[in-house]
Amino acid sequence: MIQIGFCDDDPSVLDELHELLGSYRTEHNADIAPTAFQSPFELLASIEKGARFDILLLDVLMPGENGIEAAREIRQYDSNVKIIFLTSSAEFAVQSYTVGAYFYQLKPIWPESFFRLMDSVIAACSRESSVSLILRCRTGITRVELDKLEYCEVIRRSLLLHKTDGTVLEAAGSMDSLCESLAEHRNFLRIHRSYLVNLEHIQTITPKTLVMSSCAELPIPRGRFNDIKDAYLEHAFQKEQVFLT
């Protein structure tokens, strides 16, 4: 389900957006859940409490704090949400891109252009969700591209995700829930109760150790070597990689 938040200080605009999103959901059979906010402070308070949105529609000119300022604060919690600014003037377009805006919607809002924009942004969300993982980390909500996830481990009660660029993210949740989230992605294999690896980034497999492309050495439990080796070779064959015999 796509979570959409929209924020405007004008109740009539909120009603209009609610009606437009309802019509879009009906006409496109879209699985979306809209939530309205009448001030950026309301929206920020909700995000600070843990609310997550895929798309945010923000009015640029609001009393107390404008949409651009609110977006800068939102980016401290969520670097991935698609932000669309609502404005009566295109002069804010340049400013909108400084906070990583997806696009801006001019007022008055015409259903045809709004629906085309929704088609585009929802399609972008769907593409990203199929090849990425959204995590709630200490640094905020983060999207990790799966091909850049090398391996994951549990140390004490911390879930650590190691990326190919050397970054390590500490995330909420358990290894069991992470494995469940990645179950449909065949290139991830749980080799140990505390380790999940991306088969794409395995460098060497020995009876006792698995070496990743970053040179990290992960222990192979007793009796698991053949299973892990077979899973890796099957993955390599499916990828049509070259073997030297």
Rank of each mutant, 00 (worst) to 15 (best):
Y104W: 02
R75W: 02
Q238R: 15
I134K: 07
F237N: 12
L58M: 06
S89H: 11
C7D: 09
E69Y: 04
T245Y: 10
K49D: 15
E27L: 12
A123W: 07
E65I: 10
R186D: 13
F243T: 07
H201D: 07
L20K: 07
L44R: 01
L57D: 02
I202Q: 05
I155W: 10
A71N: 00
V99W: 01
G5P: 14
A36G: 08
P108N: 00
L159Q: 04
V197H: 04
H28E: 12
L17S: 11
R138A: 13
L160Q: 10
E153A: 05
E217P: 11
R143V: 02
Y104M: 11
E112H: 12
M175H: 01
F85L: 00
F237W: 09
D31G: 10
A90H: 10
G223L: 05
R193K: 13
C152F: 04
C179A: 14
A93E: 01
C7K: 05
E150N: 01
N66P: 02
F53P: 09
M62I: 05
R25W: 09
L149R: 03
F85Y: 01
E91F: 09
L21V: 07
L57C: 00
L106S: 03
L61Q: 13
D165G: 04
P34L: 00
N66F: 06
F6N: 09
Y151T: 00
D227T: 15
T164A: 06
E91V: 06
D78L: 08
G67Y: 03
Q3H: 12
E65T: 07
G64V: 01
Q238V: 10
L233S: 08
F53S: 06
A183T: 13
T206E: 14
R136T: 14
R143P: 02
L117T: 01
L159I: 04
S12P: 09
F237M: 12
C179I: 10
S120P: 06
M175T: 01
A124C: 10
S39R: 06
N226I: 15
E200V: 11
L189C: 09
V144H: 05
Q76G: 04
E91G: 03
E19T: 14
L161K: 04
L14N: 08
L196C: 01
H185V: 08
N29A: 15
L44P: 02
L196W: 02
F85I: 04
Q241S: 14
H28A: 15
F225H: 15
L161F: 01
Q105I: 00
D227V: 14
A172P: 07
I134A: 08
L169E: 00
D10F: 11
G173M: 03
Q38H: 13
T167G: 06
T206Y: 03
S194D: 08
H28F: 08
V242N: 12
V60M: 00
I109D: 11
R138Q: 14
L182F: 07
Q76W: 04
S113C: 08
C152I: 01
Q38N: 14
R222N: 13
H28S: 14
E145N: 12
P40V: 11
Y232H: 14
L169A: 02
S174A: 09
A70G: 02
E73D: 10
I32N: 04
D176F: 07
Y102F: 12
V144I: 08
L218N: 05
S126E: 15
K163R: 13
A33M: 09
D165Q: 09
I228T: 07
L196K: 03
